[in-house]
């Protein structure tokens, strides 16, 4: 790791101001992703602002029947919360499908949303990567790409968003709440939170420098049955090849998002409207315009089969 100075933030606004005022400063909370990347010198912050002890670790009911999840609530706490287990099961299911008990105990809600990608070339510091070194090129295009995105990519990056929790939050229409360095707050719909790579793959979210995620809000429970099915190379502790998060209603309608197929949780509302016509129709529309590589083209039929499994599970 490169040397860095360290401070504990006194308030969310002070933390935001502290990071904004120092080039090279970053927030740290759980640290499970950031420290890993710092050891590889992929992340090289010169100053860390520790937000772990801020009062952002509560889960509260909202006046409209929803839930407000503090940014520092750990993955374990969120997956175990009685209301989450009862009313937002897709979130519990998605969280425990990822990482390990040890990591989920440290990883936070905001940190999970902000985790970096897992493209093998992002980690291979000797090779070009437009996320790690903007303008250096994309080694994954024409390289080993089996795990990478099939849609939403650009000629500059084909990394997928590897998260599980974010896919569940996407089907629930979650909102990400933040505070900016000037103290103002805003709410960002989860669908706008993860950016497609386009011309600037290094910009992964719409946050301004120093902007701190303070909470994630869920609207009132959608009812129905909740599903998260993750296909991966081993039964536990592996990133998804394809995942499906779904909330299905008795009348055959529902919401569906796909994970690990795109640079963001992939939910196409026009596609999920076709659920009554079956998984093939949904996937055909959701993946229209996909540009898979020969190595990862299998993800599209795999997405259809995974959705078929989830739909069968919903009927059972």
């Amino acid at each position: 790791m490169k040397p860095f100075s360290y401070e504990q933030a006194a308030s969310p606004a002070a933390a935001a101001a502290a990071v904004a005022s120092r080039p090279g400063a970053k927030f740290i909370a759980g640290g499970t992703n950031l420290l890993d990347l710092m050891k590889f010198q992929i992340e090289t912050p010169t100053h860390l602002v520790d937000v772990r002890r801020l009062d952002l670790n509560r889960i509260e009911d909202t006046s409209d029947g929803g839930l407000r999840i503090g940014a520092l609530v750990t993955n374990t706490e969120l997956a175990s919360h009685p209301r989450v287990k009862r009313d937002y099961g897709v979130v519990s299911r998605a969280i425990v499908a990822g990482a390990t008990g040890q990591l989920r105990n440290k990883a936070t809600t905001a940190g999970n949303l902000l985790q970096r990608n897992r493209c093998p070339y992002f980690y291979e510091t000797d090779l070009p990567c437009n996320k790690r070194r903007p303008g250096s090129g994309c080694s994954a295009i024409g390289g080993v790409s089996r795990s990478l995105a099939v849609i939403g990519t650009s000629q500059h990056c084909i990394a997928q968003n590897p998260g599980d929790m974010a896919v569940a939050l996407r089907v629930l229409d979650a909102t990400v709440e933040t505070v900016r360095p000037d103290g103002t707050t805003r709410a960002i719909p989860i669908g706008d939170f993860h950016l497609l790579p386009g011309e600037s793959p290094e910009i992964e979210h719409p946050l301004v420098p120093g902007e701190l995620v303070t909470a994630v809000s869920l609207p009132k429970p959608p009812g129905g049955t909740h599903h998260y099915h993750k296909v991966r190379d081993r039964a536990s502790y592996a990133f998804a090849i394809v995942s499906v998060a779904a909330v299905l209603q008795k009348d055959g309608s529902g919401r569906v998002a796909f994970g690990s197929v795109a640079p963001r949780p992939w939910r196409i509302e026009a596609a999920e409207a076709l659920l009554p016509r079956g998984p093939a129709a949904v996937v055909e529309t959701a993946f229209a315009g996909a540009r898979p590589t020969p190595e990862n083209a299998f993800k599209i039929p795999l997405a259809e089969r995974t959705l078929a499994l989830v739909v069968a599970e919903g009927r059972a």
């Binding site: 360290y6 420290l35 890993d36 008990g101 990591l103 105990n105 440290k106």
Partner: peptide
């Protein structure tokens, strides 16, 4: 009382 990976945690925290 909570299990964690000590390698992915700064002592200062």
């Amino acid at each position: 009382g909570i299990r964690i990976n000590a390698c992915l945690s700064l002592a200062v925290m």
